[in-house]
Design a protein around this nucleic acid. Structure first.
Lengths: 132, 132
DNA sequence: TTGACAAATCAAGTTTTGTTGATATATTAG
DNA sequence: CTAATATATCAACAAAACTTGATTTGTCAA
């Protein structure tokens, strides 16, 4: 298990659509959101989540894999247990993306309101996020 | 068409999992991310997106519906055209959620690093976001 | 009214996800 | 070594989601 387990931003500081989509997809399921919520209480092993979330072991394992593949959670083995925890980095990454998009959207909204002042917003670079 | 077209937060300031999941799902598709990117250039009608995104009309319509259903974009009719634009509010909403989760995750990470100081983090309210 | 255009909806097919139960792997205890 | 525990993986099925082409609805212009 020496492979690059946790996906991360490429060499260049570029947020690619595929990675973002995977991140968002990992968060797009209610069950996984409940897991994330549970992880906010601290590291958790699967066995610790089954009871409170009323989910089967296999079921949980499946979702943990999805979350891990997206880079949203990390795991740490300790004996027979595997402790899962949230990965702050990826959360921040997605948050920053949304922040950039949101800011731009707000600006457009304002422009549209006081119409006529179409200032030809500086396209090219979108707040450092070039999706492609 | 007088129905509550655009979903929004319920009466109480409570972010429910279903809504979040829908929002994240809307952002979990590469094609839709490309659409969002395009909307960062300003309002767009479907006919305006077909060429640059190399997508069929029906195909685009499908995705616009998904984005709209999630509350991520708004539409405005003007003659035969329907102009779509990003909805800053929902973007901010998701961003704030991620901010809260991310902050908490960072804190947990720090605690775990300097292990032993398990301070029994104040559970109950998770930064104002009670998922359920 | 008719024709043209923009966009939504529908239908059918393919692909991706999520769910469940059974089985395999890994680690520790005895 | 064997039994027990924690997880992962597999197989099969069910349910969503995406894609594409055809049809329908709505709007404007002539």
């Amino acid at each position: 298990m020496a492979g690059p387990a946790i996906p991360s931003r490429g060499s260049r500081d570029r947020v690619d659509a595929a990675r973002l989509a995977r991140l968002f997809h990992a968060l797009s399921d209610e069950t996984r959101l409940r897991i994330v919520q549970r992880l906010l209480l601290g590291e958790q092993c699967v066995c610790n989540l089954m009871e409170p979330l009323k989910l089967g072991q296999s079921h949980l394992s499946f979702h943990m894999k999805t979350l891990k593949a997206a880079g949203l959670v990390s795991d740490r083995r300790e004996g027979r247990w595997i402790h899962y925890s949230l990965n702050p980095g990826s959360l921040r990454e997605v948050q920053e993306f949304l922040g950039a998009v949101g800011e731009k959207a707000e600006r457009l909204d304002a422009e549209r309101c006081c119409q006529g002042e179409k200032k030809k917003s500086p396209v090219g670079e979108l707040y450092g996020f070039s999706l492609f």
